[in-house]
Design a protein around this nucleic acid. Structure first.
Lengths: 205, 205
DNA sequence: TTGCTAACCGGATAGCTATCCGCGTACTCG
DNA sequence: CGAGTACGCGGATAGCTATCCGGTTAGCAA
């Protein structure tokens, strides 16, 4: 993955704000993530409990809580890598998702991509949502989505409340709904995207 | 308190099918609901736990689970009365919420009313959502909302997938979002209603 | 190398949800 | 009115999340 130690502390002079993680702490963080990922892959999201993760990682449960706060954050940490990819796609990727396209097209492309993104990671996201529903709105990824959509909304509906509107648009694909539609009703992400388009193109006067 | 038996059949509309509840069971159901309502009113939704409810009601915890299945359903049962009022309002109340108005106006009125309804009961609904996020989509109230909105959608967008579209519209006001906006951001239900309108009136080409 | 200290470790613990099963009782039928 | 039985009762239990705190160790400095 990466260096075991941040031996070169001297060079971190200007990045020195975070007080620097001790090497055993960094090692254990990685063990925890590995154990959680393994459990998730082999036995599904139900099996990812703090106790089991700690045991599999060979450390105490208290350590897991100190590193990740709670189960929700541990689960979300597993998605971190994919989340960064997604962010890069809509911040600086190719059109129409990335910059350059008209705001309306970018919004549509973003919502399409978000549906797929959520559908792909529904198990983890749903487990996180179950552990604490309000957490969603304060996670890094959500805030990034919100910022992006707000910007687009300001350009599409100049006199709307962009903050609220962005939240409404994002709530069109919560993990629980995606899961309900795809797993319990046999709906495909494609069908969901079509309905979203129809909703945004809206009013048959 | 009230009648020991459901001889009067108040709730049992046309159903003799359910094999009739034993009197001690009915008495305990009421005690549980009373205890839960009291806890909710006096100490907030956090305090409503199965153990505490059982103790306050003076019965065993096993009984609470047999009567209500799980915490989510117990909490939702507390809303049952209000839920029926709300249903009556959009099924047979005055225009524009009730029948008679153009579908588009009814949909708008329904979403406005739903925002208020959710905002009013956000604490209970949020606790229910936290206990199990997927339950939302299979509760009686949600199914009733969905049926109603589907009907309106079929008339507004005749060639849309009404089922999916209705779910999307309903997910515009999940308890968690309403709570997040009102409690943590200082947004009023009125502002949320305005943004919903703007979204539905949609596209500034 | 040695000593110091802040940070980390992890088992014990409290309180929760949900299930199980032997005991007790309300209702039915003769 | 009296006996049988199906249903309800509720304490004991397992497994979970999250917290706490005394013992331990990594990293730094001399």
């Amino acid at each position: 993955m990466r260096d075991e130690r941040n031996t070169d502390g001297t060079e971190l002079a200007l990045a020195g704000q975070p007080p620097l993680e001790r090497s055993d702490a960094a090692r254990n963080r990685q063990r925890i993530l590995d154990a959680a990922a393994q459990l998730l892959a082999e036995k599904g999201p139900e099996a990812v409990t703090m106790n089991v993760v700690a045991q599999l990682a060979g450390i105490g449960v208290g350590t897991v809580y100190r590193r990740f706060g709670d189960l929700t954050q541990l689960l979300l940490a597993l998605l971190d890598h994919r989340e960064r990819q997604f962010q890069q796609a809509f911040l600086s990727g190719p059109m129409p998702l990335g910059p350059g396209a008209p705001p309306r097209d970018r919004l549509r492309a973003f919502l399409h991509a978000l549906v797929d993104h959520v559908a792909e990671h529904q198990t983890v996201m749903l487990a996180a949502e179950a552990a604490s529903p309000l957490a969603r709105y304060t996670t890094g990824p959500y805030l990034a989505w919100h910022l992006h959509v707000s910007m687009l909304v300001r350009r599409i509906w100049p006199d709307a409340d962009a903050g609220v509107m962005a939240n409404l648009l994002l709530s069109l694909c919560p993990p629980s709904l995606i899961r309900h539609l795809t797993a319990r009703q046999g709906i495909t992400p494609e069908q969901i995207r079509m309905s979203i388009d129809q909703l945004l193109d809206a009013p048959p006067r």
